[in-house]
Nucleic acid binder design. Structure first.
Length: 590
RNA sequence: GGAGCUGUGGUGUAGCGGUUAACAUGCCGGCCUGUCACGCCGGAGAUCGAGGGUUCAAAUCCCUUCAGCUUCGCCA
């Protein structure tokens, strides 16, 4: 086999005159009868190679027989193209190779879709032939970007004293959080391993072990329903540090992000990142991961409209709820009545009982509700909302939680319709002071908002039993353009505090010992104060690549039903395998 | 578990009660020495996701089902 001398895009005007060999796939072939052009594609780009019977008749005849996606090696002299045939649309458009020898290394069937960018085919087909899909230049670029990001992470953290350590994939099932993927044990009939949802406890134990700074590009597994930005197995940058506080972690992460976006996108991002507390995020944006690329803030008008004659408002407030509103600037004239009704229907889908609205015009208010409002209430409202002619004000009235939820969604929907979300903007935000616990109505107990190893804020520790819901956590999320890209916390490192935490989420000491005895034991052998954070690499790369789906940045992703169309996993296994694992599949109902 | 959208030659679409199931591209053959979305001529290629029903007649209407996608719940 001829040995490759260059990737296609390593060849340009400066290499003209050299004898070169390139290897790749036939992208297109243009046969002019007496002259054949082939665009040869490798992972770097494409190069036009020319077959002329006067240069080499054998190569010319061979070129007549090649087809799309044949794998060939082409040797010849790199020439400058005649001026009038320069192609400015490709990187190598000023040169071409006059082939005097070609080897066909392999043939190819006609692929089921075009190997080119921007194709419009069923994603199922792309996944079934993922190796062909990944051959497309845009997918090659994404995977190279992903590599670059991971490489920069490793370099940056190594330079900052972090050690890359591995933690088990077969581990113990943990009671809280997402559903575990389970792996039956052959040698322990009836017992199961769980695949990690995150290396959380192990990385904390690495801190106990004294490694001080740890990171891992870790695969994590959660057996929950999929979304465009959620896969059952995904990759996290997991890190943990000893002897640090929030400021240390934020500073380190900000510098790392700046470096990643510089390397990955050539973008300069400003540090430090702004910070908002969870409470402020919920009040102003109705979300704990607000997109701050646009305004459309939520405004509380409970004091103005809470005792109005409009029963929906007064009723909500009487039940302990709130009335809040968003001024959708300019939407009063932009949106038709039909579009406003559409928004109302959407609000109901998100859990609202309805959506009151007011359109402000030059000399009147159009609204189904103004007839219930007194003049001073209307004036107070318009004032508070800074309403002008052309505006649309939409309302949410219900429990605080529901109003945040619904108006938070409506805010995003409005931004979508007004096209306020600009892809080129990069808006980072730290969200801090999350609640430590929240009440779970189904389980009738408090559950950890972040996880059970998160430290309460020091000033809230004394009152955590008295007022669990008001206790704040030393937890933080990093949000980019409304997407949560990372989250972490300072951890509990004292046995007594950890025990209090377990009991707050309703675990008995026996439960705690059985599930986490090893961790509590470890806390008694000199555990340093520590904390960390984890980032969704897939989401991060997705945002950098400007993609809408996490599947586009994972080489071999799963479909919405967590299946792989290429390998057809998951699959049935033999009875013998089941027997070895002491498992029995429940009979299907006839 | 719920809601919505989609499923027609290899691919992408049109057709939405009676068509020879149309178009583009790809594929195959022929011609062509400067193309790069090459061009020109010719050809092959579809039991319309699956099953059932309504009808004289179903790609088209109805029901069921499967798959994919989006989304709510869920995802510490």
């Amino acid at each position: 086999m001829m040995k490759r001398t260059h990737y296609t895009t390593q060849l340009g005007v400066e290499q003209a005159g050299q004898d070169v060999v390139i290897c790749g796939w036939v992208d297109t072939r243009r046969d002019h009868g007496g002259l054949i052009f082939v665009d040869l594609r490798d992972r770097s780009g494409i190069m036009q190679v020319v077959f002329n019977p006067e240069i080499n008749l054998d190569a010319f005849h061979l070129a007549e027989s090649v087809r799309g996606e044949y794998v060939v090696a082409a040797a010849g002299k790199l020439r400058l193209r005649p001026d009038e045939t320069i192609n400015p649309n490709i990187q190598t458009g000023q040169v071409e190779i006059y082939v005097d020898k070609m080897e066909v290394l392999n043939s190819s069937k006609t692929p089921p879709f075009y190997i080119e960018d921007g194709i419009n085919v069923d994603e199922l087909l792309r996944l079934k032939y993922r190796y062909l899909d990944l051959r497309r230049p845009e997918m090659q670029k994404i995977m190279m970007l992903r590599h670059r990001v991971v490489k920069e992470i490793r370099d940056y953290l190594d330079e900052n004293g972090f050690m890359d350590l591995e933690t088990p994939i077969l581990m113990k099932s943990s009671p809280e959080g997402a559903r575990d993927y389970l792996v039956p044990s052959r040698v322990h009939p009836g017992s199961f391993y769980a695949l990690p949802q995150s290396p959380q406890i192990f990385k904390q134990l690495l801190m106990v072990a004294g490694f001080d700074r740890y990171f891992q590009i870790a695969r994590c597994f959660r057996d929950e329903d999929l979304r465009a930005d959620r896969q059952p197995e995904f990759t996290q940058l997991d890190m943990e540090m000893s002897f640090v506080d929030e400021e240390d972690i934020f500073g380190l992460v900000e510098e790392m992000m700046a470096r990643l976006f510089q390397a990955g996108m050539g973008r300069i991002i400003n540090t430090p990142f702004p910070r908002l507390t969870y409470a402020e995020c919920m009040a102003r944006f109705g979300s704990d991961k607000p997109d701050l690329r646009f305004g459309l803030e939520i405004v509380d008008v409970t004091d103005i409209l809470g005792n109005s004659d409009f029963k929906v408002f007064s009723g909500a407030v009487a039940a302990g709820g709130v009335v809040r509103a968003i001024n959708a600037k300019g939407c009063g004239e932009k949106f038709s009545r039909r579009e406003i009704d559409d928004l109302g229907r959407l609000a109901i889908e998100y859990g609202a009982r309805g959506m009151a609205w007011i359109v402000v015009t030059e000399n009147e208010l159009k609204s189904p509700i103004t007839k219930f409002l007194k003049e001073d209430q209307i004036k107070g409202l318009l004032d508070r909302m800074q309403a002008e002619a052309g505006d649309l004000i939409i309302f949410g009235a219900d429990s605080t939680e529901m109003v945040c939820r619904v108006l938070g969604f409506m805010r995003l929907e409005l931004a979508r319709r007004l096209e306020l979300r600009h892809d080129e903007e990069l808006n980072f935000l730290w969200v801090t002071d999350f609640p430590l616990l929240e009440w779970d109505d189904e389980e009738k107990r408090y559950v950890a908002v972040h996880h059970m190893f998160t430290s309460p804020k020091l000033e809230d520790i004394d009152a955590m039993e008295a007022e669990p819901a008001k206790t704040r956590a030393r937890a933080y999320d990093l949000v980019l353009n409304g997407t949560e890209v990372g989250g972490g916390s300072l951890r509990i490192y004292q046995r007594s505090l950890q025990e209090r935490m377990f009991s707050l989420v309703g675990m008995t000491m026996e439960d705690a010992r059985e599930k986490f005895g090893y961790l509590m034991d470890a806390f008694e052998y000199g555990t340093p104060p520590h904390g960390g954070i984890a980032f969704g690499i897939d989401r991060l790369v997705m945002l950098m690549a400007g993609r809408d789906s996490i599947r586009d940045v994972i080489a071999f992703p799963k479909t919405q039903s967590a299946a792989c169309p290429m390998t057809e996993a998951p699959s049935k296994v033999s009875l013998r395998q089941l027997r070895e694992l002491s498992l029995k599949i429940r009979e299907e109902k006839a």
